[in-house]
Every structure is written in C-alpha cells, then in structure tokens.
C-alpha cells in the first residue's frame, strides 16, 4: 500500500435526508492518480458520497478532507470546488451558451483568465475530447455523447486535481457510450485522480485501480476489479454482480 497522503479522505461520514439515511458511516481514502470506480444498487449512497466530496451535500457527521482541506472548515468552498471537477449524469450544460462558452465561462469568472486565453484552452479541450468543430454549437444541437464530452471538457478547463463522475454514461444511447468512456480512459491514463460512479464494467476493468461496492449507505467491499469479479467476498456483492452482469 502506498504511503502517500490521500487526496480525498472520508472518515465515518453520515448523511441523512429527513428519515432517509443515505450514508451510514462511510470511510474511504483515495490517493492521487488513483482511479476508483464505485458500484452499487440504487439508493446505496454512491451518488450522495460523490456529492459530499465537493460539498454539494453537507454531511451530518464525520469528516471529509479534500486536497488537505477539511470541508467543514473551508474558508472558501468555491476554491475547493474549483479543484474538484464534476461530470453529471444529465450533463447539466448551460443551454444558453455555446459549447465554447460553456467551457470558457468558469475559467474567466473563477480563474480570472482572459477571454482569449480561456477560448484557446476551450478549443484545445474540445479537440482533446474529439469535437473541435462543435465550438459554436449550442447544447441543444449536440448529441448526448457530444454533450457529455463538452461537460467533461468544461470540468477539465478548470485544471482540477480530482474529477468526479456521477454515472456519466447512464443517460446515453448505447452507441454513444464508447466515445465518452474513451475520453475517460485517456484521462485515466494521463494520471488524473478519478472517482467514477458507473455500471460500465468494461471501463472499470480497463481503467480502475480499485473498485468499491456500496450498499445501503455503507461500503461493503473494496478490491481491484479482477478480485471483485472473480472473487467477491460478500454475498451482497455476489448478488449485485449477478444482477448487473448479463
């Protein structure tokens, strides 16, 4: 095991929404350049855990430390969020801006980059995700796969240290899933720290250093993809895997 400092550290995190207990004591460490894929049934708390990492949800108990900054005592949560990029299941692109403007806006407004510079970086990122010609298109004019790739580029434009993916391909038609996963694979190969909630086993096998299985607000099992597939330890893991692998 690495002796490096974890870049994300969750200690006994609890989160409830009214009577619904989403997280019941989750502890996990994620190290720089690690790619962690989180799987689990719906309602298991995987999305909630992800959203707690960039403070979209405030936890009720426990501690989260991201990039050395404890989230509950962060002086400026916006600065922390700028270092943690997030890609959503429903893309959440800004519909009134073109693809280029989507990617450039936060750069200008948060990082203070000049218009020219932000636009150039945006174009480079669009090329990197494979759609340089769509710079002037509005989200409504793009396919789902293209929209998600723009969303990834938008998050990457902030040059974050961590990228969070909340079921990035779950809302896509099957023929578009590959193009998004390819972008994510490239990102993983470049050494980005990634936490991915996804059901794409192919991606997990290809890119993940570690997989986490969650159920009912707790982490049930952590292992490498091969170990988790071939030798799941818990019954619940086995049950879940049998359901999703068909």
């Amino acid at each position: 095991m690495d002796k490096k400092e974890p870049i994300i550290n969750l200690e006994d995190v609890h989160k409830h929404f009214g009577h619904v207990y989403a997280l019941r004591g989750v502890s996990v460490q994620i190290y720089p350049a690690e790619v962690v894929v989180v799987i689990g049934p719906s309602g298991s708390g995987k999305s909630t855990m992800l959203r707690c990492i960039n403070h979209l949800e405030a936890i009720d108990r426990g501690r989260i430390v991201v990039d050395g900054i404890p989230l509950d005592r962060a002086k400026n949560i916006n600065k922390v969020r700028a270092e943690v990029g997030m890609v959503f299941q429903l893309f959440n692109l800004f519909p009134h801006l073109t693809a280029l403007e989507n990617i450039a806006l936060a750069q200008r407004v948060v990082r203070g980059r000049k218009r020219q510079q932000a636009a150039q970086i945006a174009r480079d990122l669009l090329a990197k995700v494979g759609i340089p010609e769509k710079a002037g298109s509005y989200p409504s004019q793009l396919s789902g796969g293209q929209q998600q790739r723009v969303a990834i580029a938008r998050a990457l434009a902030m040059q974050p240290k961590i990228m969070l993916f909340d079921e990035p391909t779950s809302a896509l038609d099957p023929e578009m899933i590959k193009e998004v996963l390819d972008v994510m694979l490239d990102l993983a190969k470049e050494g980005m720290t990634m936490v991915v909630v996804s059901h794409e086993m192919g991606f997990a096998k290809a890119a993940a250093d570690r997989m986490i299985f969650m159920d009912e607000g707790l982490i049930v099992e952590e292992a490498t993809p091969e170990e988790l597939y071939n030798n799941p330890q818990h019954d619940r893991t086995k049950l879940f895997l049998s359901k999703i692998l068909h």
Partner: peptide, 14 residues
C-alpha cells in the same frame, strides 16, 4: 433545473 446551479457551483462559481 437544479442541475444548472449544481454544475455552476461545482465549477467553483459563487
């Protein structure tokens, strides 16, 4: 949609 605000805040916007 709430996702818009979430996306904006996730990028670090106030």
């Amino acid at each position: 949609p709430k996702g818009q605000m979430e996306a904006a805040r996730s990028l670090g916007m106030s």
